[in-house]
Design a protein around this nucleic acid. Sequence first.
DNA 1: ATTATCTATAGATCTATAGATAATGC
DNA 2: ATTATCTATAGATCTATAGATAATGC
Lengths: 188, 188
Amino acid sequence: MTAEPRRRDSAATRAALLDAATSLFAERGFEHATVRDIAARAGVNQALLFRYFGSKDALYASVMAGQGRELLEGDSAGRLLEGVLRRLLEKGPRQADHLLFTALQSGGVDNAAAGIREELGDDYVRALSTLTDAGNGELRAELVLGWVVGISMLRASAHRDVLRTADTEEVVRLVLDAAATLLERIER
Amino acid sequence: MTAEPRRRDSAATRAALLDAATSLFAERGFEHATVRDIAARAGVNQALLFRYFGSKDALYASVMAGQGRELLEGDSAGRLLEGVLRRLLEKGPRQADHLLFTALQSGGVDNAAAGIREELGDDYVRALSTLTDAGNGELRAELVLGWVVGISMLRASAHRDVLRTADTEEVVRLVLDAAATLLERIER
DNA sequence: ATTATCTATAGATCTATAGATAATGC
DNA sequence: ATTATCTATAGATCTATAGATAATGC
């Protein structure tokens, strides 16, 4: 970000690493974002990552903790799905939501951020499940969350052109209409 | 599978490797299934994998080619989504469909099976898109495919209990009803 | 004699650390 | 003097290969 000659500044270095890690984890997922790539994007020596965060796992946990909290703020439950879809379709994979989806994707993997990941998933499910009176509201909410995860996955796929180039409004309308059969109080 | 003392038999060894690779790739995805794990599950020395398939990539391509063709057979287009969901929910991750979904997941990754993966995705989309007369039928079909991919991902996640333990009939009904707003000729 | 199988290891990554170097604050 | 940064490398995996060993078919 800052193109200046960079003074020695541990706080700025730490912040640059956190920034670079956030975008790279969102773009490539935990395993494909190497510590060297992250340090390179931050414009910082690779050893500093360990000095300031201890381990790659701990850095991931910091990223998830930092971005995670913002995910659910700003949108009411009724507008949550719409908000997530818009951010996903318009801003692409360098995106806090995408971070959660790549995290949910590597479900079985057991790293330091596993707890935060599950918690964020729970937060989404809890918010969405308030949108129905059905007895199986949680299941309905998880199915909707699964849909967003899947759309996020396919969009990252190189070859699924139709979805990748589709008009945002069109996709939002199709998904909201279908999801409304599961969660009747979705606002449109 | 065969618990016999195993005679020397290159065809049987090859088949055992292919079997083990199919299930391990489906369970863990391409990268998390190591050649040592595959050879171990096949009960075979690890070097034989390279003798019979050349590389891990080539083995993956063989697996995808072998299982892929079966995916779309057996179900009519109208019953395709239901069939996929049932297999996914009942049989769990050791499953041909799951193989495709873990493949679609690692969209960007460029390995020997990338072509086969895209082709299989196209086959699903083509079949599903026949179920609507809407002008954006392909987009609708990709969204439905994305849903199945996402459900498959979340089910693999350790913590999403509601979805993992849900009754198959209940999930099938919820998803088919919602998907019917996208593809009107889905049979239920 | 042929060829299926096994042993040993090369070579490429990746995370992580120990210790050297150099810029800042008093 | 303190501490931010860099160099060099250890140690763990993973794919892949070269060459030795041993079981089968003629």
